[in-house]
């Protein structure tokens, strides 16, 4: 071994790249995609539900031809997560769920955001390294859901 570096990810992507990461991530936490709302059509908010919002600080959702009003809604056991782009261009997740505390919704939302970030990073790393003619020689998912990739310079 010659060096160990730790990197915190920055999500800079267009909406399709974000939705791809959300689709790939949510299943691992038992969520299913309920709706992908078109530009300007926002999901109806559940009444009498607790809400919590999470802004993903290190993110920038690029404006593209598809507009900026899109939303992606995922659900699990009455808990709903609505992914969208906020006014500043960052990724925002609005959590809703009846019978859940705000803290509980925040915790679930943070977990979701983590998995989406993990999928985004995985896709970006694999794509970029393949473009540089590097080969993935091994890939595994650990019990704690850490993804491990071994890459060789070919």
């Amino acid at each position: 071994m010659s060096s160990v570096i730790v990197i915190t990810p920055l999500i800079i992507a267009n909406w399709p790249a974000i939705t791809a990461a959300v689709y790939a991530a949510v299943g691992t936490l038992g969520f299913a995609v309920a709706r992908h709302a078109a530009d300007g059509v926002t999901a109806s908010r559940a009444t009498a539900a607790t809400r919590a919002e999470i802004e993903v600080e290190d993110s920038d959702i690029l404006q593209d031809a598809g507009g900026t009003g899109q939303e992606l809604v995922v659900e699990r056991d009455g808990i709903r997560a609505i992914f969208s782009r906020d006014a500043r261009g960052a990724l925002k997740v609005c959590m809703e769920g009846a019978g859940c505390s705000k803290a509980e919704l925040k915790r679930i939302g943070q977990e979701l955001v983590g998995r989406v970030t993990q999928q985004y990073v995985y896709h970006r790393v694999v794509t970029e390294l393949k473009q540089r003619n590097m080969t993935i020689v091994d890939e595994s998912v650990e019990a704690d859901k850490t993804v491990r990739i071994r890459v060789r310079n070919s």
């Binding site: 071994m1 010659s2 060096s3 160990v4 570096i5 730790v6 990197i7 915190t8 990810p9 977990e111 983590g114 998995r115 970030t117 993990q118 985004y120 990073v121 995985y122 790393v125 590097m134 020689v137 704690d144 859901k145 850490t146 993804v147 491990r148 990739i149 071994r150 890459v151 060789r152 310079n153």
Partner: peptide, 24 residues
């Protein structure tokens, strides 16, 4: 020695990269 990278992506998205067999 083979030059390799071991990349770990945690469930929170944090990444740890180890270089293997790459000197200097």
């Amino acid at each position: 020695a083979r030059e390799e990278l071991e990349i770990e992506i945690s469930p929170t998205g944090k990444v740890t990269v180890r270089t293997i067999g790459i000197k200097g």
